[in-house]
Amino acid sequence: MSAAAARRTRRRTAAAVLRTRRAENRAHRDATTRVKVSDYLAGLGMPTEDIDRYGSWAGRYIVSEYRSAHHGHEPRKTRKRTAPCKGHPNGRWIKVNVYRLTDPALSAGAGTYKRTAPFVAAAFTTAA
């Protein structure tokens, strides 16, 4: 076998291994439930008006906690349609962060923000 053929075989094998690994990771990633901050706050029992009003700030605290816990890495993103407004009768698409439901950054970040802290405290005192 020539050197070029050996390199070609190694590259093809490495590519096949990488494809298999990516497929396994994708299946694992898709099996985990991810939530947006608004869904998490709704699960804590926060009123919809307050979620619309304070959800963005709560998200900033949560993403800050996530970055500090994960060595500066960003959380995964998804898109969300906003409510209709002037100039956008159907709403518009914005990018938002999504987290695993079990991620400690959700409770830590929402517990740090003064507007959402009472809801987090109430959820964990009744659960305990």
Score class of each variant (00 low, 15 high):
2 S>G: 15
3 A>V: 13
4 A>K: 14
5 A>V: 13
5 A>W: 08
10 R>D: 08
12 R>A: 15
12 R>Y: 04
13 T>F: 13
13 T>P: 00
13 T>V: 13
16 A>H: 13
19 R>Q: 15
19 R>E: 15
19 R>M: 14
21 R>P: 01
23 A>I: 08
23 A>D: 15
24 E>P: 04
28 H>Q: 14
29 R>T: 04
29 R>K: 04
30 D>G: 03
31 A>M: 06
31 A>P: 11
31 A>N: 12
33 T>G: 03
35 V>G: 04
36 K>T: 13
37 V>S: 08
37 V>N: 10
37 V>C: 10
37 V>F: 04
37 V>Y: 03
41 L>V: 00
42 A>S: 12
42 A>R: 12
43 G>W: 01
44 L>M: 11
44 L>P: 13
45 G>T: 03
45 G>S: 09
45 G>C: 10
46 M>D: 07
47 P>E: 11
50 D>T: 04
51 I>L: 08
51 I>C: 10
52 D>F: 04
52 D>A: 11
53 R>N: 09
54 Y>P: 06
55 G>Y: 10
55 G>I: 00
57 W>G: 12
58 A>V: 14
59 G>P: 08
60 R>E: 14
60 R>D: 13
62 I>N: 05
63 V>E: 11
63 V>H: 03
63 V>D: 08
64 S>F: 00
64 S>D: 14
64 S>H: 10
64 S>A: 14
65 E>P: 03
66 Y>P: 05
67 R>H: 07
68 S>I: 03
68 S>Q: 14
68 S>M: 11
73 H>V: 00
74 E>V: 01
75 P>E: 04
75 P>A: 01
76 R>H: 04
78 T>Q: 09
80 K>H: 13
81 R>C: 03
81 R>Y: 02
84 P>E: 08
84 P>V: 10
87 G>D: 10
87 G>T: 03
88 H>W: 11
88 H>K: 07
89 P>A: 07
89 P>V: 06
91 G>V: 05
91 G>Y: 04
92 R>N: 07
92 R>F: 06
93 W>P: 00
93 W>D: 12
93 W>K: 05
94 I>H: 05
94 I>V: 15
95 K>Y: 01
95 K>G: 00
96 V>W: 01
97 N>P: 05
97 N>G: 01
99 Y>K: 02
99 Y>V: 01
101 L>R: 12
101 L>F: 00
103 D>G: 00
104 P>Y: 02
104 P>C: 06
105 A>H: 01
106 L>W: 02
106 L>I: 02
107 S>D: 07
107 S>M: 10
108 A>L: 11
110 A>R: 01
111 G>Y: 04
112 T>I: 00
113 Y>G: 08
113 Y>H: 14
114 K>F: 10
115 R>W: 04
115 R>I: 00
117 A>K: 14
117 A>Y: 03
118 P>E: 02
120 V>S: 02
120 V>G: 02
120 V>A: 05
120 V>Q: 03
124 F>D: 03
125 T>Y: 06
125 T>I: 13
126 T>H: 11
127 A>K: 11
128 A>T: 14
128 A>F: 10
